[in-house]
Amino acid sequence: MKDFIHAELLEIAEHFKLLASYSGIIADAALHCRRALENNRKIMFCGNGGSAADSQHLAAELIGRYKLNRKAMNAIALTVDTSILTAVGNDYGYDTIFRRQVEGLGQEGDVLVGLSTSGNSENVVQAFLIARNMGISTIALTGQGGGKMKELADFCINVPSDATNHIQEMHIAVGHLICGLVEQGIYGHA
């Protein structure tokens, strides 16, 4: 068991070493989010399963706080309203659950962050398509290949792994980096 744990931790560490080469795109995405918030726009997050949980986690970091005590920032996870999710899913199909929310809540200049380990989650893809038509920029957090979202996103951070658990580990780290950079940029010393 110790050998397994040791090997897993070394593999995780190796993925994060490779992720360091993504510093430029992460910085660009964070600056884009910061500018949207400074212009009184919002950051919307969406994803399925573990990516839904990460969406909620990251929205909470912006609404609450990440490291600094400061005013709430305008962020929302499109994964939390069960009435909307079930009504839209039932009436229009599961593939539209985020698209309808972007259409109803989104404004030009907002940012939509979509998390999908494959990059092919159809409900996130559909949200990206409507966002593009509405002048809402998109940030994709995906696995190594990037999937369909890579082609649709303004910024694609397709982390260096094909294993779902490792992709999700890196997504939350990237999300934390973005939240920290946004928070510092608006309320700190960066």
Rank of each mutant, 00 (worst) to 15 (best):
A13L: 13
E38F: 08
R35P: 07
R34Q: 15
E38H: 08
L37P: 09
K42D: 02
F45L: 12
G49M: 00
A59M: 08
A27M: 13
G47D: 06
Q56R: 07
Q56Y: 03
H15Q: 10
Y22R: 08
A27F: 09
H32R: 13
H15F: 11
G50I: 00
L18S: 11
A60F: 04
H32C: 15
A29P: 13
A20V: 10
A30Q: 08
E38Y: 11
G64L: 03
E38T: 04
H57M: 03
A36P: 13
K42W: 09
F16P: 09
G24K: 14
G64Y: 03
D54G: 00
A60T: 11
I12N: 12
A13I: 14
K42P: 09
A29C: 10
G24R: 14
A52S: 07
G50Y: 02
S23E: 15
S55N: 00
F45P: 07
G47A: 01
R41K: 15
A13N: 14
R41S: 03
G24P: 09
A53D: 01
A27N: 09
G50V: 00
E61P: 09
I26P: 10
L31P: 05
Y66G: 05
G64T: 01
A13R: 14
G64C: 04
G49S: 00
E61K: 02
S23P: 07
N48C: 02
K42V: 00
G50H: 01
A27T: 14
A27Y: 11
E38L: 15
A36D: 07
A30F: 10
G47M: 02
I43Y: 07
I43W: 08
A30S: 15
L58P: 04
H15S: 05
Y66M: 07
R65E: 01
S21L: 11
K42Y: 08
A52L: 06
Q56A: 11
I43S: 11
I26A: 05
E14S: 13
G50N: 04
I25F: 08
S21D: 15
A60G: 12
K17H: 10
L58N: 07
L18F: 09
R34K: 15
I12H: 09
F45A: 05
A30W: 08
S23W: 11
N48R: 01
A36Y: 12
N48L: 01
E61A: 06
G24Q: 15
D28M: 13
F16M: 12
R34F: 09
A30H: 07
H15L: 10
